[in-house]
Structure formats: C-alpha cells, structure tokens
Amino acid sequence: MLAIYLNVVVQGVLTGLLYGLMALGLSAIFGVVRVVNFAHGEFAVVAMYAAFVLFRVYGIDPMWAMLPIAVAFFVIGYALQHTVIDAFVGRPDHEQFILLVGLAIVITNGLLLVFGPDAQPANLPYAFDSVMVGPLIIDEVRVYAAVAALAVCAALFAFFRFTRTGTAIRACADNLVGAAVVGLNVRRLYALTFGLGLACVGAAGALMITIADAVPSLGPAYTLLAFTIVIVGGLGSMTGALVGGLLIGVSEALAGFLVAPSMKSMFSFALLIAVLVLRPQGLLGKKPA
C-alpha cells in the first residue's frame, strides 16, 4: 500500500520538476522585468508543438530538440521584449495584462488553426519503458525529462550567480534606479531576462511533450499553473519556483490518485488561496519591507 503512495509521490515529484522549470521562467520575468507574462503557458504549448513536429517529421528526440527550441525561444523572447513589451514596462497591471492576453489569444488560436483542436501524442518509442527501483516502478521518460529540467535549472542558477551579466540582472531586480545609475543597460538586460524566461518555458514545453499530449487549449491552464507555482513558492525566489513546482506536482498527483483526476487542479487552487491569505510573499519569498 505504501508503495503505491510512494509511486504516486515520485510521479508527482518528477512532473513537478518540469512544472518548476516552466514556472522558473515566469518568476524570472516577473521578478526582474515586473511584467506579468499572461501568455506563459501558451508559450509552453508552442514549445510542445515544436518538439512534436521535430520528432514526428525529423525524428529528433525531444530531449535533444529541447536545446534548439530553447535557443529559438530565447531569440523570440529577446525580440518581443525589445520591440513590444518594453513600452509597457512600468505601465499599470491591466495594460500589460491586455497586451499579453491578446498575445495569448493569438498563440492559442494560431495553434488551433495550424494543428486543429485534437490532442497530438508524440508516441515516443520508449514512452512506456519503466525502471524498477525497489518497490517503485518509475517511467523512464519522466526520469529523463526531470533530469533534463534539473540541468537547465542548474545552468540558469549558475548564470545568475556566477556571470557578470547574471549579477547585473539581479541588480536590476533589486534596485532599478541604482542599476541605471551605475550605468547598466537596463533595456538590454530586460530583453535578456525575457529571453531567458522564454528559453526556460521553451525547454520545459519541449520536455512536457514526453509526458502529455499537445493540445492548443492547454495554454491557459499552463499559464494558471505557472502562476500558482510562482505565488506558492514565492515571487522572485528561484528556489521557490522549483519548490512550488514540486509541491504542486505532488499535490496534483496525490489528489488525482485519491480523489478524482478531474479535481486535481482544485487542490492547487485551494493551496494558492491558502498561501495568498496566510503567507502572501510565498513559502520561500522574502517578506516585503
């Protein structure tokens, strides 16, 4: 009996890492650029379709396809911030919201036009392989995807911690005026951050195709999921995004198993409400001064 629960939890943890990677992108964008990316989940779904096409047409494994997709998403993010979104930095929430919701509508329905409304499974050859670890039966794909997600997260952490540019971006997030005063090119750093944020979601989406079918309507659901994770984990905390992802992944897996799969996100929202009320800065977020 315990083994079943353990299996469910491990399943949740592995999925949660993918969620965490997706949320990490959102957290970075919101934490630094202060723009609410309401098209975040939609970008994840675009990445899913990209990985789907690369696999189906060219036979490229999503684990590898993740790299070019992330790079492409970085370029898209950089360009998007540089051309359109930059004008909205510092403007009221609802204006940013309309801009990005407009973008989200365009993306979701663009996908609908190109791929149709039906779910598209990638059908990986090793999709049903599993490994036995003691009493646990673990899907191999999930392990690969989780490891890849962790690797991307680690790379991002290292970038922010150890590179000059990463430090400069953190400075922008901490003290915008100060950053501008010491001569940092804030506009460029914002574009970089948005690019990196989208690279995260691109990688996460590409990996997501290994465990979920691509459907255009997933976009809004993933956007909400990413927001839930970021708020639960704590805005501006990169570790928080990962922890939030794990927490939501596990709670969804348990709720799906114990109650009903269709009710699993109800528990995520309940968790979100509880966190907002009891600890608005999120589990790992810093208390506002």
């Binding site: 004008a87 403007r91 309309i98 801009l99 973008l103 509508i105 365009v106 329905n109 609908l112 036009l113």
Partner: peptide
C-alpha cells in the same frame, strides 16, 4: 473556415488598441 481564425485577429486587435490608446 477554420476555428481560431477570428480569435487570432481579435487578439491582434486587442494588442494594437492597448498599444495605441492605453
């Protein structure tokens, strides 16, 4: 005749309006 065509234009219009007359 595909579903979604209308919504794509709708989304674009929203973006243009909020860009021009915030």
């Amino acid at each position: 005749n595909a579903p979604g065509a209308k919504a794509v234009f709708f989304g674009l219009t929203l973006m243009v309006i909020i860009y021009l007359v915030p």
